[in-house]
Simulated assay, not measured.
Amino acid sequence: MIRAVMVMNTLGKPRLTKFYDFQHVEQQQELIRRVYAVLCSRPENVSNFVEAESIFGPDTRLVYKHYATLYFVFVFDSSENELAMLDLIQVFVETLDKCFKNICELDIVFNYSKLHTILDEIIFGGQVLETSSTEVVKAVEEISKLESAANAIIPKSVSGWLSRST
């Protein structure tokens, strides 16, 4: 099972975090700090696989990939294959590239909900759902069309009234 997905920049600032088992916010922040400490202390020429038992508990590993200014990190248990997780990071990044035309850190910051939609199409509840970036892009485009249609149905006067009443 996948326990967490993290995207952080090279300064340790988290850009996307998704934990598939409950963690308090303070504990999430501490885990992110500890993962970053491990990543930034590793030389470039070592393996992308790390035993994470000291951070996340027994039977936990993490795999990461460094692209430009971002680290993409998947935390998982022994039921998952390390090479498959590395490939899944590649699928995630390829999908982001297709959706955003050369993904960069700002795309992640300003398109937070779309990023979660993409991730939810690939992984849901800690289980891998889809490994084809083409299929994920199709699903995300369909979701975007449905959202646009739903927004077009609600008249502006009603949507203005709804925003004032909350």
Rank of each mutant, 00 (worst) to 15 (best):
Y20V: 01
Y20M: 02
Y20E: 10
D21G: 05
D21I: 03
F22C: 00
Q23P: 00
E26W: 08
Q29P: 08
E30D: 14
L31G: 03
I32G: 05
R33Y: 10
R33Q: 15
R34P: 06
A37I: 00
L39A: 05
C40P: 04
C40T: 14
R42W: 07
R42E: 11
R42L: 15
N45D: 15
N45A: 13
N45S: 13
V46K: 02
N48R: 10
F49I: 03
E51S: 04
I55K: 07
I55P: 10
G57D: 00
G57Y: 06
R61V: 02
R61T: 01
R61N: 07
R61P: 05
V63C: 08
Y64F: 14
A68D: 03
T69E: 10
Y71P: 12
F72K: 09
V73Y: 03
V73T: 11
F76L: 04
F76I: 03
D77H: 06
E82C: 00
L83A: 04
M85R: 02
Q90C: 10
F92Y: 15
F92R: 05
F92N: 08
V93H: 10
T95C: 13
K98P: 06
K98W: 09
K98I: 01
F100Y: 13
C104T: 07
E105G: 00
I108R: 04
I108G: 02
V109D: 15
F110I: 08
F110M: 07
F110C: 04
K114L: 15
